[in-house]
Design a protein around this nucleic acid. Structure first.
Lengths: 213, 213
DNA sequence: GTTCTTGGTGTACACACGTACACCCAAACT
DNA sequence: AGTTTGGGTGTACGTGTGTACACCAAGAAC
């Protein structure tokens, strides 16, 4: 039954992260007190310092953890069961895949998504910066992804980033709504429909873009 | 020099709202203390209660005030200097008008926009509800606006709302970025370009939507 | 001119906060 | 086996917090 020291440390570190994530459901990170977290975990306040130097640092750890969830989502959105034959089929498959990934992954990591949504603009400055940086990385990745799609040849790098920004913003807002839906099936399905149609509209517009300048 | 009682009351009420708005630049509303606000205003803590029952109620007042700014922006976006002749001209005029309204109005009321951006998802529950409600109203208004545009005949009411949601989300995120830019001209101009191109893409996609189902 | 009303004051309390410090004890190292 | 290391404890402090209460002074109502 003897537990190695690093195991024990990792266990209470996890407990702190979980406690903070749960407490953040009711209040922003900036309003979170070290003592609240310690009480929730079941340790004495000063023990907190054995793991994090401050609440801000805790927040940065939570951002990292949350974006791991998001990357999982994005990876599965890029994975196709069967490679689509035609360009049009690829198109529809991309839309379908992305939206499906959204509605299956977000509810599984809803606390993380709610955390990001909350702290993206309201968190302490270092946390805000970290979130912003991660989102920019995602936009860039999406832009290079789009560049490989047939029909995107005439697009400039800047235009690709602008399109990626539009898509990430839209999907992020849907992810927020799904995370806030608390798993209610009907709400999630409605959002799924909205997301699909919006993706359609944007991609159709994007396809006839460079011819319309 | 005698000041009427309601004048005086209104003056310190304003001072409280301003103080809260300024303090909220550095921390979310939920982390704001009654005493901080009182100190900033220059009154004793208990005097706060003469104007608001709680910080939450103060927040609701700030939401009201902030959305007054937003409505101003939207009204001017709907106003045309000269009525466009062709459908295509109307189109371009709408895009141009909206984006211009964005970049001229947001910097003037940037504290309000930052407040909304922060508290929309991180604020106390009543504040979040109020912001959400106001945004829904705006989406509905935009949907009925779009319905009047020639070429939107084949759109169902639900599709109009979905399109409006896409547009409001995109413009909101640009408003947030402008408000966070702190008035730096080059940043604002870059965002202006992004907003314009995104609007173009979406509207082009929307135009060829019902033929593509 | 007297009384009423009310925005603002000052004192006082119980509580939560971050953090410093001395301590404990079991795993880890030698 | 003896020593070191480090996660967790308990006490103690000054400070900030929300709010109750009695009070004041000047505009409003009579």
């Amino acid at each position: 039954m003897t537990e190695t020291r690093i195991e024990r440390k990792e266990r209470t570190r996890r407990a702190i992260l979980d406690a903070a994530l749960e407490l953040c459901e009711r209040q922003p990170l900036a309003a979170l007190s070290l003592r609240q977290v310690a009480k929730q975990v079941g340790i004495v306040p000063t023990a907190f310092y054995r793991h994090f130097e401050s609440i801000d640092e805790l927040g940065l750890a939570l951002v990292d953890e949350s974006f791991t969830s998001l990357r999982d989502l994005l990876r599965s959105a890029r994975t196709f069961d069967s490679p689509p034959a035609s360009d049009r089929a690829l198109f529809l498959a991309v839309v379908d895949n992305s939206v499906k990934a959204l509605v299956t992954h977000v509810p599984k990591a809803d606390r993380h998504f709610r955390f990001i949504a909350r702290e993206r603009l309201a968190g302490p400055a270092p946390v805000r910066a970290a979130v912003r940086h991660q989102l920019e990385l995602i936009e860039r990745e999406l832009a290079t992804d789009i560049a490989r799609v047939p029909g995107a040849g005439g697009w400039s790098g800047e235009d690709l980033l602008i399109l990626a920004n539009l898509l990430v913003n839209a999907m992020l807002s849907h992810a927020e709504e799904i995370a806030l839906a608390g798993g209610r099936e009907d709400v999630v399905r409605r959002i799924e429909g909205v997301a699909r149609r919006q993706l359609h509209i944007v991609l159709i517009g994007a396809l006839s873009w460079d011819s319309s300048r």
